[in-house]
Design a protein around this nucleic acid. Structure first.
Lengths: 119, 119, 119, 119
DNA sequence: GTGGTCTAGACCACG
DNA sequence: GTGGTCTAGACCACC
């Protein structure tokens, strides 16, 4: 279901929540969809269930999902705006890296060349 | 001398060491140049001297600088290769972010537009 | 757990890291073993926790261990090559001292006698 | 006159004083011999004269030489005992390194083999 | 509980 | 004045 980079320096729970956000952003999970249960996901990923719970808590805090006690976790109804914000974050992060290149002396043409060569 | 992003989630000492690496990469600091002293830099940045030393320790471990006890910190002699490696890292990091955009559905033209609008 | 030479002129954190390297080299600590926690070690050695952390940082930079934030410090997986290099260093250091004796006029037999008397 | 390891991690003044001690131990400088003047030595080594003075001060503190104001520095008269002590230090330093090998699991025969192969 | 960061302030060694 | 070490104690993030 999810592919995680276990060698990442980022905390595991963020790896999980980010992977799920990606699935929401690209439409794999849609509004009102039920997410896998904490137990089943922790089992299939072979990790502690507390870590999965922390990931879901993160998604809840960030407004992507909500929990219905005793039933499970669901993707929220109106997430279009949130998804746009999330996409903005990713774009800004791209711009930051572009700025790093700028600081190293790359001009616009140099950067566009890198994009063309690597897309 | 240095411009730091104090709102970053990254530790302060890494902000400092990364800022100095950028100055080395863009030629502001050249091989054998003397870096600002730990105490003077900590004073001008209004931070603890231990934090600056931690930043310099990082730069030393990564091979960019060396210390002469009682004299000061200096940029190493042969850093061309290291600078190339570091630049590669930054470019790859840019490519990763570009890939994130790709996964969100941006095509090459979209991305080039972002570059043009934000450079 | 560790035996330190507190009268040494070398910094305390290096005494600690070197003592741990010896334990890794002689097999007391094996790959993937968990090292004593920073706080527990600092307590049992009656020294500040920052000093122990500096020792562990040194071991991390030298490639012997890695840290898992919130869990603990662990001996790295593939350290055979590193251990061989480290052993070479120690042997070379022994040879250097042997050479000092040679320069003072000791011949091979004299030196072997010292070894026999003091092993 | 003197050969120094400028890349050493040890302070320069100790490099100098140790080099001179070696020359005393091997008989190049004998009791009552005049040492090179601070000025001439600092010039021929291309280093600060304060550093040479610090080295001579070290030798004076350790009892190898004495200064005759206005005339120069001279090797002391009765240095046999001191030379023996100095040799003991070097031998003990050798024993320490031998002990390092012991801690790594080398037995007496192993160590003697290293001596035979490398003398 | 774990490691990681940061501060404040002390003392030492070197040039 | 320089860097280097060490302590004491604080707060945070993660599991």
């Amino acid at each position: 279901m999810l592919t995680l980079d276990l060698n990442s320096s980022k905390p595991l729970y963020l790896e999980i929540s980010n992977a799920i956000i990606k699935l929401i952003l690209n439409g794999t999970f849609k509004a009102r969809d039920k997410l896998p249960s904490i137990r089943s996901l922790s089992k299939s990923l072979s990790i502690n269930h507390n870590t999965v719970q922390r990931a879901y808590l993160e998604l809840e805090h960030r407004g992507f999902i909500y929990s219905q006690s005793g039933k499970g976790m669901y993707v929220k109804d109106n997430i279009e705006k949130l998804c746009l914000q999330e996409k903005s974050k990713i774009i800004n992060s791209f711009k930051d890296k572009m700025n790093d290149l700028k600081e190293l002396g790359f001009n616009q043409t140099n950067i566009i060349d890198i994009v063309k060569e690597n897309y």
